[in-house]
C-alpha cells in the first residue's frame, strides 16, 4: 500500500526529554544479539563458568561438614577466575564489539545520529553501555551465579561473612575489568573505519604484552612492573590490591597504582572517541 492510500497523521504523543544513551546502548546490543556469532561466542564463554560451577558442586559434595572451609578462603583462585573471564570477554569483543564505532564510521551513521536531539555524551555513553551489556551477559552474569552458588555452600560455616566479602570484591573487580576492556575497545574502534584493523589492534594489545612477558621471563628476571603494561596484568594487580591486601602487592608498589592505571586507560578510550567526534565534519 503506497502513501497515497494511507492516512498519515503527525505524531502528537509523549516525548521523552532525558538522556538518549540507554536507547543507543540497548538498541545496539539488541542488534548484536540477533547474530548467531554473538550467541555462540557467549555460549562458549559460559562453558568455563559452568565447569567451575560443577567443581563447586563436586567440592561441596565431597567435603565433610567439618572440613568446609578448613583451609580458609583464599583470593588467588578468584583472581584466576577473573583473569579467565577477562580473556573470555576479550574473545566476545573480537567476535562482536570491535566494530562498535568503526561500523558507524564506515556506514556514515554518525551524521544521522547527530541530526537527532542527542549530545556527544549520549553517543559515547551509549556505545560504552553496549559493550558493558555484552560484558555483563557474557562474564558478569555467570560470575554472579557462581558467587551465589559458592556462598550458598558456606551458609552454615563460620566464614560466611568473609566469603561474601570476597565474592563481592571479585564482582567489583570483574566490573572494573569489564569497564576497562569496554573503554579500550571503544577507543580502538573509534580510530579506524575498518573493523578488521580494530580487531587486529585489540589482539595485539592482548597478546604483545604476554609475549614480552614470556621473552623477559626466559631472558632475565624481569621487573614486576611489566604487569602494568598488560590489561590482564593490571587487572591481576588490582585484584591483589583489592582482595589480597597490601601483602599481595609488590612491596614497592602503592595500592593505588593499578587503579590509577586502569582509570587512565578508561579515560584514554573515551578521549580517543571524543577526538574522533571532534572531527565529525570530516566524516559527515
Amino acid at each position: 500500500m503506497a502513501i497515497r492510500d494511507q492516512s498519515y497523521q503527525r505524531y502528537d504523543g509523549p516525548v521523552r526529554t532525558g538522556r538518549s544513551w540507554p536507547v543507543i546502548g540497548w538498541s545496539e546490543f539488541r542488534a548484536y544479539w540477533r547474530f548467531w556469532r554473538t550467541k555462540l561466542t557467549i555460549f562458549a564463554v559460559w562453558l568455563l563458568p559452568l565447569m567451575y560451577a560443577l567443581l563447586v558442586l563436586v567440592e561441596a559434595a565431597l567435603m565433610e561438614p567439618g572440613q568446609l572451609g578448613a583451609d580458609g578462603p583464599g583470593h588467588s583462585h578468584l583472581n584466576l577466575f577473573v583473569s579467565t573471564q577477562l580473556f573470555a570477554l576479550a574473545l566476545v569483543y573480537i567476535a562482536r564489539g570491535c566494530g562498535i564505532v568503526s561500523d558507524d564510521l564506515r556506514h556514515g551513521t554518525l551524521q544521522l545520529y547527530f541530526s537527532k536531539p542527542i549530545d556527544r555524551i549520549d553517543y559515547m555513553a551509549g556505545k560504552f553501555y553496549t559493550l558493558v551489556l555484552l560484558g555483563v551477559v557474557s562474564v558478569f552474569a555467570p560470575a554472579v551465579l557462581l558467587a551465589g552458588l559458592r556462598t550458598a555452600f558456606f551458609v552454615q560455616s563460620d566464614m560466611l561473612a568473609e566469603i561474601v566479602v570476597l565474592h563481592l570484591q571479585t564482582l567489583v573487580l570483574l566490573a572494573i575489568a569489564i569497564a576497562l576492556l569496554a573503554a579500550v575497545v571503544l577507543g580502538l574502534s573509534s580510530l579506524t573505519r575498518r573493523t578488521g584493523w580494530a580487531v587486529l589492534g585489540w589482539i595485539a594489545i592482548l597478546i604483545v604484552p604476554l609475549i614480552v612477558h614470556a621473552v623477559g621471563a626466559v631472558a632475565a628476571d624481569i621487573s614486576p612492573w611489566d604487569r602494568l603494561l598488560s590489561l590482564h596484568g593490571l587487572v591481576g594487580l588490582a585484584g591483589d590490591a583489592l582482595m589480597g591486601g597490601a601483602d599481595a602487592m609488590p612491596e614497592w608498589m602503592p595500592r593505588i597504582v593499578p587503579f590509577a592505571a586502569i582509570g587512565a586507560l578508561i579515560g584514554a578510550g573515551f578521549a580517543a572517541l571524543n577526538w574522533r567526534l571532534s572531527h565529525l565534519e570530516k566524516i559527515t
Binding site: 505524531y11 509523549p14 516525548v15 521523552r16 538518549s20 536507547v23 538498541s27 544521522l112 536531539p117 542527542i118
Partner: peptide, 17 residues
C-alpha cells in the same frame, strides 16, 4: 522497522510508540 523505530526513540519517542 528497527532502523525507523530507533530513530524515533532518538527523537524522544517512547519505545512502544
Amino acid at each position: 522497522v528497527d532502523f525507523v523505530s530507533f530513530n524515533g526513540q532518538l527523537c524522544g519517542m517512547p519505545r512502544n510508540q
